[in-house]
């Protein structure tokens, strides 16, 4: 009895230990920490992936949100590495998100930092053709930006130095020396010309005084001329007024003559018209009188008819001879 009871205890203990062992192994494998994830793909072309390995953390705002699941150096696109990320499903991976490589300067270990650009609030769900997962765009690391700035600064400094060298070339130095020499000669000549300049200034002063005197004379001449011109203007104004009066009188006379001529023309036209009527009526009367005379003459040409009256055949209807 006693040995059977011991076996039960041993068996139970073994089973418990096995369960504890299994639990420990499960805990150690990290499977307990695994949460539901979603896979994304990043194609890195511009950044170095030194220090990045499978399992490297994926972070967003400094918080680990996933891990690098896989990577592949694409054989047909040199310099391009396809990296597969597993990201916690609760992480807001939005449209326009960018992935950059962040590297610890001491350990050299790399991680993938995800940054939402804020351009969109729509979750990144779209899977491009030929892909199995959504693709995250590669961003530019801050260190890269600093390096580009330094590179630009160096390039600009180099350019400035080159231009300074060209300014200070031998040819320019000779030209500058020539200019300085000419300036020196000019100042010497000016110094030598000072007495002459002084004489010129004195002469100019005298000329100015003479000109002033002439100006005064000219002013008096102009004043006299102005007075004469005013007199001439008065005379011209009077003459123009008289001419204007004469022109008005002439215009009135012409208007009166035009009216009279128009009246004469109307009278002439009327007279001609009436005269033409008279001539026409008189001509018609003369013509008819002539024809009547001819008819009378024809009647007088037969005296027998005058003496004995018309023939019987000439009598009209209802008329009888005696």
């Amino acid at each position: 009895m006693e040995s059977e009871a011991r076996y039960v205890w041993v068996g139970a203990t073994v089973v418990v230990l096995l369960l504890i062992l299994a639990g420990g192994l499960y805990w150690l494998s990290g499977a307990a920490d695994r949460l539901p994830t979603k896979r994304f793909v990043v194609y890195f072309q511009k950044q170095s992936l030194e220090g990045l390995q499978i399992g490297s953390p994926v972070r967003m705002q400094g918080i680990r949100v996933g891990r690098v699941a896989d990577y592949t150096i694409l054989p047909d696109q040199p310099g391009t590495v396809r990296v597969v990320l597993e990201v916690d499903r609760r992480t807001p991976v939005l449209e326009g998100i960018q992935a950059v490589i962040a590297r610890n300067l001491l350990t050299g270990l790399a991680a993938v930092d995800l940054t939402n650009t804020g351009q969109s609030r729509v979750p990144l769900m779209r899977v491009p053709a030929g892909e199995t997962d959504p693709v995250i765009e590669e961003g530019v690391a801050d260190l890269s930006r600093v390096a580009e700035l330094v590179e630009d600064l160096g390039r600009t400094g180099h350019e400035s130095l080159k231009r300074l060298n060209s300014v200070l070339s031998d040819e320019n130095q000779r030209a500058l020396a020539g200019t300085l020499h000419n300036l020196n000669a000019l100042s010497g000549a000016l110094h030598a010309s000072v007495p002459e300049l002084n004489a010129t200034l004195a002469a100019s002063r005298q000329a100015a005084q003479t000109l002033q005197a002439s100006g005064e004379s000219f002013t008096s001449v102009v004043r006299d001329s102005g007075e004469r011109l005013a007199r001439v203007t008065d005379a011209a104004t009077r003459t123009l007024a008289e001419a204007d009066t004469t022109l008005q009188a002439t215009r009135a006379s012409l208007t009166r003559m035009e009216r009279e001529l128009t009246g004469i023309a109307v009278s002439l036209r009327l007279t001609a018209d009436l005269a033409a009527q008279e001539v026409e009526a008189t001509g018609q009367s003369l013509r008819q009188a002539s024809e009547a005379l001819q008819a009378a003459g024809r009647g007088l040409a037969d005296p027998v008819r005058i003496l004995y009256g018309p023939l019987r055949e000439e009598l009209g209807p209802g008329e009888v001879r005696p």
């Binding site: 009527q277 026409e280 009526a281 018609q284 009367s285 008819q288 024809e291 009547a292 001819q294 008819a295 009209g316 209807p317």
Partner: peptide, 19 residues
């Protein structure tokens, strides 16, 4: 309107009616 006197041939310038 001016009415011109009617023209007439010599036959009708006499005062006799014509048949």
């Amino acid at each position: 309107l001016l009415v011109r006197e009617m023209d007439a041939p010599g036959l009708y310038q006499a005062s006799n009616p014509v048949f």
